[in-house]
């Protein structure tokens, strides 16, 4: 029943046997123990499970692990380098864009996918890029400010 897949997560290669009904989210959290990727709604609505797959933000709860075979995946754990936070992570802290933190990994990865493609997004483009990431705590203004602060600097 299991299928052999190779996932490249944060630059490391993992060879695993996965069941067809396991999602990429299940595998990232439970098999690779990378629990920075959050399990929220499970149906594509909240963005808590956002990861970057082949350079695009996707909801890992709606991707089968078998579909991700051979894919290049970045999770929140892949952002800090040599013990130093990624500029987006720093900006989120500095701007008070983190409260409970549940939405933060997904939010930051959506922002990263945007900035990787468009170095100087407008406020509207930023809001559009994170429209699939729900935050119950901060009311988005601080999040948008944090992302704006990183525009043109990455």
């Amino acid at each position: 029943m299991g299928k052999a897949v190779v996932l490249r997560v944060n630059g490391e290669e993992y060879e695993l046997e996965v069941k067809p009904q396991e999602t990429l989210l299940d595998v990232i959290r439970e098999r690779l123990s990378l629990t920075g990727t959050k399990r929220g709604c499970e149906t594509g609505d909240c963005g808590a499970c956002t990861v970057i797959m082949n350079h695009k933000a996707v909801s890992s709860c709606l991707v089968l692990a078998v579909e991700a075979d051979g894919a290049e995946i970045v999770t929140i754990e892949g952002l800090a380098k040599e013990g130093k936070l990624h500029p987006l992570q720093e900006a989120f802290v500095r701007h008070g864009a983190v409260q409970c933190g549940f939405c933060t990994p997904g939010m930051i990865l959506s922002a990263k996918a945007l900035l990787d493609e468009n170095k100087n997004p407008t406020e509207e483009e930023i809001r559009r890029a994170i429209s699939g990431n729900l935050c119950r705590c901060t009311g988005y203004t601080k999040i948008v400010e944090a992302i704006k602060a990183c525009s043109g600097t990455l």
């Binding site: 594509g44 963005g47 956002t50 695009k56 933000a57 996707v58 909801s59 709606l62 991707v63 959506s110 996918a113 945007l114 559009r128 890029a129 429209s131 699939g132 990431n133």
Partner: peptide
Amino acid sequence: VGSVQVRNR
């Protein structure tokens, strides 16, 4: 359609 994450898939 949906969000960026949805449109990418």
